[in-house]
């Protein structure tokens, strides 16, 4: 029982430790923890255009550092999250959003799971139709003969 509790405790601790990738160096961080949290959350959703698979929060590129500074300034100035994101998209396009929006360019991406399900479903229905359900159960005479044979 003690061991079980220990495992649970370790697991909870690991959860509580939270993401280790919030990379803003202490000097960049805002004094106000609420605003800093917001700035980090925004930065995590934006792609660094230099190291394209890293977020602005994760990247060491100087351009990313500059974006972090801009986001923090806007957050302090009271801009809403959406306004800051729109400001970035206006300059760098939707590619800068790590979570692509649902638009004519990306509907096939977002719809892929549904499409796959539909195709699979159709395939199953077709296969079922071609191979109709199990044959009739054995008659009493057949069952007796089978038992004879298996003796």
């Amino acid at each position: 029982m003690i061991r079980f509790r220990l495992v649970v405790a370790v697991f909870l601790l690991a959860l509580a430790a939270g993401p280790a990738w919030a990379l803003s160096s202490p000097s960049e961080m805002l004094a106000n923890p609420v605003l800093e949290k917001r700035a980090e959350a925004i930065g995590m959703q934006l792609r660094c255009v230099v190291c394209q698979n890293e977020s602005i929060e994760q990247s060491d590129a100087t351009l990313a550092a500059q974006f972090r500074a801009i986001i923090r300034r806007r957050v302090t100035e009271g801009w809403s999250d959406k306004r800051i994101m729109d400001w970035m998209v206006q300059r760098y396009g939707t590619f800068i959003l790590l979570r692509p929006p649902f638009d004519p360019m990306t509907w096939i991406l977002w719809g892929a799971p549904a499409i796959a399900l539909a195709v699979g479903g159709v395939a199953i229905v077709l296969a079922r139709r071609r191979h109709p359900s199990l044959p009739e159960p054995l008659s009493v005479a057949e069952r007796q003969r089978l038992a004879e044979l298996l003796k």
Binding site: V49, V50, L63, Q66, F67, I70, R91, Y92, G93
Partner: peptide, 12 residues
């Protein structure tokens, strides 16, 4: 400071 470049959407 590269601020104008950001308004251009410059990435390098």
């Amino acid at each position: 400071d590269g601020r104008t470049a950001i308004n251009f959407g410059l990435y390098g």
